[in-house]
Design a protein around this nucleic acid. Structure first.
Lengths: 251, 251
DNA sequence: GAGCAAAAACATGCATGCACTTTGCGTGCC
DNA sequence: GGCACGCAAAGTGCATGCATGTTTTTGCTC
């Protein structure tokens, strides 16, 4: 397992459910918008609603599920703008990671990274979900090598959210070329050229975001409000909840 | 109120407790290490343990309280290294904020910011806790102007954690000069010089961190293990839980 | 008086139960 | 046939109760 969040200690049941759901979400077994009733979860995992509820609370704090009062919890459905913002934050965070790591990784650590990328390579023909999960775990692995609990937490969290984004907006086979970029990243980290590695990470994440977010009109979007937004221009209804800022600045 | 996290909707009791505790923590009414028993909280806020527990879970997810299994929850006590890392992340995040905001703020927004700084100014003679809270809220106010929920969430969270850090390591009157830097920041934001404003924010936060973290030996530290760490060098005990990385690079 | 063990008090982990809210569906009215 | 109303099913919000684990106090021994 990749996660080492404080919330999921070894033997607590809520943590187990958290991990299971998290994985299900990032592997797209649970699509955005999927319903997560407390009793169903509790029954499925053999615990009471109390625990399921607690787990959902944690996941909501991470931004993976949406929790509305008196309503069923659902897997989060980030808007396009949120997705873009998430990637922007991720870029900064991961630049910080590689800047801290550049030239400081042990041979063992480099080997671990390379082994992971090999795994990604092997999964190339397999299902998309696995590729995405492995790619995400590569970034989390990097974060873990900083040994900074806070950085690890934030990068993990935001990487998971990006997964969610990918499953909403991403095209089927957009993560293939990323494997090679991971290789380049490792080489640059080994060389110790801090600026180069930061730039590389920047471009890597930027192009992942680019590949995922080019098509602003979501294909299998399920958020009614967003879909209806363009049509609402004629109606005198409320100005929607969406953000209008920077929509013109789409690349 | 400054917070608009998803977790604390308007009428849910857990959110109320969250906000109350958060405020108590950042105003140093609850010092790091303070005990937070579920029943006591529940009784104090007129709710059951279930709710208090939920609130503690949220706060733990934010890193403000530590939750150990079968043990009483306590206000988090970040290590010096964690504090340093927190500020590093904060710098990147807030640089992102001001880069997005530079030259794009309306007159009303600028006025709001200036009003807040005036408030900070007025609180100069008052208790430290209020100054620190206001200074923190200034940064959160900035983040909110990006209208990016994710950025708002992360900046808020990390700013609160920095508050916690300050109450652990900070010297009594270290936040005074920060008010002026806030003024400069607003002017730079208005001018629209993105690079300048990013640099300004960087230096501002860096110097806050500097002022707070110079004295690595914590004055009113309550973590026995950390206090004992330097003395443990002679003893053949376990190598402690602290991180050794970069400790030599202390400025 | 110091050291230690048992037990009481204390606090959490978790399940269950009840009240309230939302939602889906069927019925009756137009 | 279509629409509004209302009832029942489903689901959450929250409190309480019991089991378990931890901390402190007590009481005994040396």
């Amino acid at each position: 397992m990749v996660r080492d969040k404080a919330a999921d200690a070894s033997s607590d049941k809520a943590g187990t459910i958290c991990r299971a759901l998290r994985r299900a979400i990032i592997e797209q077994a649970l699509e955005p918008g999927a319903r997560l009733p407390e009793d169903a979860l509790g029954e499925r995992f053999g615990v009471s609603r109390t625990i399921a509820r607690h787990a959902l609370g944690q996941l909501a704090a991470e931004g993976l599920v949406e929790l509305r009062r008196n309503r069923i919890a659902v897997v989060a459905t980030p808007s396009w703008q949120e997705a873009r913002d998430t990637f922007d934050i991720r870029i900064e965070l991961e630049r910080l990671v590689v800047r801290q790591l550049s030239g400081r990784l042990s041979k063992a650590q480099l080997a671990t990274l390379r082994a992971h990328v090999d795994e990604e390579d092997a999964a190339r023909g397999g299902p998309d979900a696995v590729s995405i999960r492995l790619a995400t775990e590569f970034h989390i692995l990097l974060a873990q090598m900083t040994e900074s609990p806070i950085l690890i937490r934030y990068v993990s969290e935001i990487a998971y959210r990006c997964c969610l984004t990918l499953s909403l907006f991403g095209r089927p086979h957009s993560s293939d070329c990323a494997v090679n970029e991971h290789h380049l990243l490792i080489d640059a980290l080994e060389s110790g050229d801090t600026e180069k590695v930061a730039t590389l990470m920047h471009h890597h994440l930027d192009s992942v975001a680019e590949r995922a977010l080019v098509q602003q009109a979501k294909p299998r979007g399920r958020d009614i409000m967003d879909i209806l937004a363009p049509y609402a221009a004629t109606a005198p209804a409320a100005p929607s909840a969406g953000r209008k800022r920077r929509l013109d600045a789409a690349e």
